[in-house]
Amino acid sequence: MNVTVEQEFVCRGHVACPGCGAVLAMRYVLDVLGKKTIVVLPACCWSVINNRYPTAAVKVPLFHTAFETAACVATGVRAALDMKGDNDTHVLAWAGDGGTFDIGLQALSGAAERNDDIIYVCYDNEAYMNTGIQRSSSTPFGAWTTTTPAKTFKTKQKKNIMDIMAAHRIPYAATATIAYPEDLMNKVRYAAGIRGTRFLHIFCPCPTGWKTAPDITVELSRNAVRARAFPLYEVFDGTRYRLTHEPAQEDRMPIAEYIKPQRRFAHLTEAEIQVMQDHADEEWGRLMKVTETWPAG
């Protein structure tokens, strides 16, 4: 491990499920952004993880807000700081996939189009986990959720939020995941050093919602990258791409192996798993093509 967490901004005693990936993401991001950060938190797992009044696990200012308002509240906070001449405090909108891909997409699009000076993190656990595992538009094909029972599992592919964000031509959008803290923290560091709307899509496995053992959270995160289900890359100005981690040939893993320990996929037939594989291959191919065609300088 070439990086470490220098300063803990997440306090022990938080109430995340054992093995929660979203806590690690918060820990890494806040370590890079530091004390001068204000978190805007819409409804999501972290609304609970932060623990109940009058205690708080997050040691920087944090504002709980409505599900769909992370981006616009963050914009407001930024505006207030700007009016006070505070240019060095980071405003961090911290939303789940539901709050980003679905209900919060409009506000996020608004902020991105205006290029509001905020860092927006979507910590993606691929369903509405806080409400008890309902499908979101980030839920991958094939997954069981309480609203997509195994018999009628989700038949639509995961929405490509990065494409949507890139289409806004924001200065920086990147994917990251907790198994690669150095990569993740480098991206946060880069984001912290520039202005405008910065979007980080952080993949955070969820033992509760994925029906996995709590000890394999990091492993699943790593395997998602190895299986190329979640590629690690950056997009600059929405137009120039860079892959930040390409799994070595011998580290590559078929989707089948990646999903094997996840009981949310337990019902899938080989043919259905092949659909997932084909999709991953196609998306990867597309990413390779854009990366080659429009490389970051």
Partner: peptide
């Protein structure tokens, strides 16, 4: 929502 964020920040 934006006003609320700004107001909360003073």
């Amino acid at each position: 929502a934006c006003c609320m964020g700004a107001s909360a920040a003073g």
